[in-house]
Every structure is written in C-alpha cells, then in structure tokens.
Amino acid sequence: MSLLADIISWALILAGSFFTLAGAFGIIRFPDLYTRMHASGVIDPFGVSLILVGLIVQAGLSLISVKLTILILFLGLTSPVACHALGRAARHRGLKPLLADREKPPSIS
C-alpha cells in the first residue's frame, strides 16, 4: 500500500514538474502576450495542481491533505479570474493579438 502510494505520488509529482517546466519554456518561447498566456495556463493551475495532488497522496488522510485540497480549490478558482482580467485589460488597451493567416501559419523564432 505504501509502495503503491509512493509510486502514484512519484508519477504525479514528476508529471507536474514536467508540465511546469514545459509551461515556463513556453512562456519564454511563444511570440506574443496571448500565446504566452496559453503557456502560462499549462503551469498556472494545472502543473502546480498536479504537484499538489502528488503531495496529497504522500500525506495520506490528514489535516495536511485537507489544506492541500483547499489550496488546489483556491488555485482553480482564482487563476482563471486573474488570467481573464489580464487578457481583457490587454485587449482593452489595444494590444492586438497575433492572428494566423488562413493560408500560412506564422513561424516562431
């Protein structure tokens, strides 16, 4: 049982770390604000939440795992609000999103 829990939490934490690093890489790599926001969406609730779920499996049934669950709920409820506010503010200030042509997709440096 303990070994199984260890394996599951290893897998979850490694997957979360992978998604987090990939999202950070995407924030560096993508060409404009709106596409970077998509890369941030991989980190912002998802990657960190996976790591936290891994910690829940590690902690077992205790007050700690309850706190971690509340933390995941907070992240899941608040991060889309911040993301939406950011995109809306940028759009209202006239920051044009980079859009793809019908014919040729834009290439990334």
Binding site: A24, S40, D44, V48, L71, L75, S79, C83, L86
Partner: peptide
C-alpha cells in the same frame, strides 16, 4: 503575466 505565474509557482 510573469509575476502572476511566479506567484503560483511560489505557492
């Protein structure tokens, strides 16, 4: 955006 993401990562 970077500051917000760093905040989540810090959590």
């Amino acid at each position: 955006l970077a500051a917000n993401t760093i905040g989540t990562l810090a959590v």
